[in-house]
Design a protein around this nucleic acid. Structure first.
Lengths: 206, 206
DNA sequence: AAGTGTGAAAAGTTTCACAGCG
DNA sequence: CGCTGTGAAACTTTTCACACTT
């Protein structure tokens, strides 16, 4: 597979480009130049062109890129042609906010189930997603063939739940616990550490 | 300033190291080797040593690093000796979850005020942080000399609020809106795009 | 004229491997 | 002997500049 020499960061940017393209589609724009799209995405034009070129030739010289076609190709590359099922573990503060968050649905993900130690308590909070006891985690994930999980549990139990997720067949974990998960090489973990992002700002702000 | 040739990513990792060190302090460990700390932080030992070496010599050969001293030096470098005041703009779903989130406080940040178009509605939800109308944004930020802001507003108004924040003296923005903010060069923006992180996983999961 | 595609140079980052200290 | 500190090598990513197409 020639994915090997594609910069990992280019994949990230692809998502950003896709967002910007969606907005252009809404505005019924037909084509867009690398300069314009790059500006919207916050990158340099040359980088945008190079990123796209990893996947083929989509632009027309002198004209730019066809908005629709480009959006479609990015969806293909990112494996997002169809709705992806996701589960969420730990519906505490952050977890239940994410369950109410519309951004995932909008981008083509469906949170099909949430798990918590206290499913009753979570259901009471007006969450639309079905909430189950964490005991049912393995069976339900296997049943629905879910590959992606969002992990929002306290630090001390994060690793053990990650192990169970992997055992159940999950291949990608979006981890909100501030701890580095130890998982097999074929499983991808993406860490989102909110406090850390704030800390990072501190360094640059005087 | 010799910060110039310190890899930006090293700064990120410093925060991670700090987290791990905090845990060691709790366990009353006196020293730690680069191998052990690197493992906890999810990096290679050589990288850890190199990262620390940018800021001085802290280790003892044959022994390792003094846990306490190292934690203190990282706090110094990151500018986190004392509590940093932060404001939060937009207390919707995500915003109010963040207001309840304990992680920021734990890492030395204090959310001193939140702003929303409907402060009454937000207050009703059992938030401890004082909530004000967004009209008061400029005056209160100036008053409390706040430098950091967490922005959780809808895409369409994110840029205009960013402008107001910058005008009020904010120098760092943790931006949760899926849009690239256009700010003066001296202002730092750190984007956290939740849907994008999930999308990113999609690519690697078959 | 406008704007893509791309090799080659530059910049940035990680890893290696080992000298040197306690 | 164990473990840090570090120069040099290897690798990755970004930027440049321009040939080339419509």
């Amino acid at each position: 597979m020639d994915r090997i020499d594609i910069p990992k960061k280019a994949i990230y940017r692809l998502s950003i480009y896709h967002r910007c393209l969606q907005r252009l589609v809404e505005n019924e724009q037909q084509t867009v130049s690398s300069t314009a799209l790059a500006k919207a995405a916050g990158v340099k034009p040359a980088q945008l062109r190079k990123d796209l070129a990893y996947f083929g030739q989509f632009g027309t010289r002198g004209l730019g890129y066809p908005v629709e076609t480009l959006a479609t190709m990015i969806r293909d590359v990112l494996g997002r042609e169809k709705l992806q099922p996701v589960v969420l573990i730990g519906a505490g503060n952050l977890g239940s906010a994410l369950l109410r968050y519309q951004g995932f649905q909008k981008e083509g993900f469906e949170v099909v189930a949430a798990f918590d130690v206290d499913p009753e308590g979570v259901r009471a909070r007006g969450i639309n997603v079905p909430v189950f006891s964490e005991k049912e985690l393995e069976t339900r994930i296997a049943q629905e063939q879910v590959r992606l999980a969002i992990l929002c549990v306290p630090v001390n139990i994060a690793q053990s739940l990650a192990n169970r997720l992997v055992g159940a067949g999950v291949q990608g974990i979006l981890n909100f616990s501030p701890v580095m998960l130890d998982v097999p090489a074929e499983v991808v973990v993406n860490n989102v550490d909110l406090a850390l992002e704030l800390e990072h700002l501190s360094f640059f702000v005087r």
